[in-house]
């Protein structure tokens, strides 16, 4: 259970990214965050794994205070929280294998991993993760030799290495075409259902929201303006969140 209480983030330049935000995510839930670019979605996700330090408020996971954690304790929390990025954030020049293995660094001895040594069972684990997302044949390819959809699957395999309790997905399909978008979303959904991993995912497309979300939170200028079921988001609600000029955006008309 992830609990966010009165979360506020003010950047040094005075921008208020999040304002007094509170919500809960029960174990195994697929929560989707929607909102315009700049509405605070990325900031929220990064506050949860402390890539960004919140200004005020408290985030707890299974009773452990994430906001107060430091050093080794923080790294210990981070390794239970996987993250998937819009731009995949792979190390382009490294092999797919190295990229996937890097997801395990939080569990490994700092010195031997620094020298590039990974135990045999970790390599097995990496291969299993790659097989699960269907890229086992790309083990030795350089990450930048892969297509966008394949790169995102490497990103998911890297996250799998963490054996996470929670996955944060920051617009995971915004850089992909509509068909790939569904394929990637299905991998994430599978993790959510088969491994009982909670997912917090930011999305833009209404059809993806209605297809994958269990619950939706809408943000506008860092303030929660909607919380409810995907079926409750009608055209009017969507316009309320995205503004008057919003069109009914769909990833694909086919699905």
């Amino acid at each position: 259970m992830l609990k966010v209480e009165h979360l506020t983030k003010v950047y040094p330049n005075g921008t208020v990214a999040l304002k007094d935000l509170s919500f809960e995510v029960p174990d195994g839930e697929f929560l989707v965050i929607i909102g315009l670019s700049g509405s605070g979605k990325s900031t929220l996700l990064r506050c949860i794994n402390r890539l960004i330090d919140p200004t005020e408020g408290k985030i707890t996971m299974d009773g452990i205070d994430i906001t107060a954690a430091k050093g080794a304790e923080l790294r210990h929390i981070r390794r239970q929280i996987g993250m998937i990025f819009q731009h995949f954030n792979l190390v382009k020049r490294s092999s797919v294998m190295t990229n996937v293995l890097s997801g395990r660094l939080g569990y490994l001895n700092s010195w031997s991993s620094t020298l590039g040594y990974f135990p045999h069972e970790e390599k097995e684990r990496a291969l299993a993760a790659m097989t699960r997302v269907g890229i086992a044949d790309k083990v030795h390819s350089r990450a930048d030799a892969l297509s966008g959809g394949q790169q995102q699957r490497v990103g998911i395999a890297r996250t799998l290495m963490q054996e996470p309790k929670l996955i944060l997905a920051d617009e995971p399909v915004a850089s992909l075409d509509p068909v790939l978008a569904h394929s990637i979303m299905q991998y994430i959904e599978k993790l959510n259902e088969e491994d009982n991993v909670s997912v917090i995912c930011s999305l833009h497309y209404l059809d993806l929201i209605q297809r994958y979300a269990e619950r939706v939170i809408g943000l506008k200028d860092g303030v929660k303006v909607f919380e409810g079921l995907p079926s409750e988001i009608n055209r009017a609600k969507f316009k309320e969140i995205y503004g008057e000029e919003a069109q009914d955006m769909r990833a694909t008309a086919l699905v």
Partner: peptide, 12 residues
């Protein structure tokens, strides 16, 4: 991006 991603895995 990669720095962010590797940091997020709990690496030191």
């Amino acid at each position: 991006g990669p720095i962010e991603a590797v940091t997020a895995t709990g690496a030191n």
